[in-house]
Write a protein that binds this DNA or RNA. Structure first.
Length: 221
DNA sequence: GACCAGGCACATC
DNA sequence: GATGTGCATGGT
């Protein structure tokens, strides 16, 4: 049973913003690296870090496996939390070499979505949002990515309780829409696009494309 | 100078 | 199980 509200929100956002062209990246491996680096961080800072890795010739499984962790931290410094993210990248790489052929993602790409998700969540530093970003944007699986903007938007429009947890939000979005990778890709990107402009922690009201909904973005709590 | 960003793990209660 | 805290750079 699709949700009329969710379909209407998608239509309004698509009308306003159009295709978002997510996820920026030249390969699934680069997308995964970006997914870890972008945790609680502005994407522009992530781009600098990824550029540093490319310039150093290290943006590949073998490169990240072999690089000294302190050098890695220095290269990803612009992305913030560089020490912890260096460890997280190493954790992912170790998992990839333990589960793939010489670090290739080909074998893990054959795993069913549920078991791949469970396996990703076992990696230190990969939580639900990062795992789902990897599943959707690197592995083309129909998984709805939930982030802080998504929770805020759904809560402020009273589509969900403001304190709904990650899985509740994901279940709501996935059950209310078609399980379509292209739709999920665009929908998440559009919610982030809207959130950046109108759904910051301190709400900004005028001009939001969702103003026409029963509960518009101006409702603060 | 304050606030925020495409989170997560861990400690403490 | 809920809540608080550390992690950190760079743009607005």
């Amino acid at each position: 049973m699709y949700s009329a509200a969710l379909m209407e929100i998608y239509r309004l956002l698509d009308d306003r913003y159009g295709p978002q062209h997510w996820w920026p990246g030249d390969s699934p491996f680069e997308i995964i690296t970006g997914a870890i680096l972008t945790q609680n961080t502005n994407w522009l800072n992530v781009e600098k870090a990824i550029s540093n890795l490319k310039d150093a010739g290290l943006l590949d499984p073998v490169g990240l496996l072999q690089v000294d962790i302190d050098r890695l931290a220095g290269l990803i410094r612009p992305a913030g939390y560089f020490n912890i993210k260096a460890r997280r990248l190493k954790s992912f790489i170790e998992w990839l070499f333990a589960n793939g052929r010489r670090g290739s993602i080909d074998r893990v790409a054959e795993m069913p979505t549920d078991s791949l998700r469970e396996s990703l969540l076992q990696i230190n530093g990969i939580g639900p949002e990062t795992a789902d970003s990897i599943l959707l944007y690197a592995f083309d699986r129909p998984v709805f990515v939930v982030d802080a903007y998504t929770c805020r938007i759904m809560g402020r429009h009273r589509l969900l309780e403001p304190d709904a947890d990650y899985e509740q939000v994901r279940e709501f979005l996935e059950s209310g829409t078609a399980a379509d990778t292209t739709l999920f890709n665009e929908y998440h990107a559009l919610l982030v696009r809207l959130g950046k402009e109108y759904c910051r922690p301190k709400p900004k009201c005028a001009g939001c494309p969702l103003e026409s909904l029963p509960h518009d973005i101006c409702e603060e709590f």
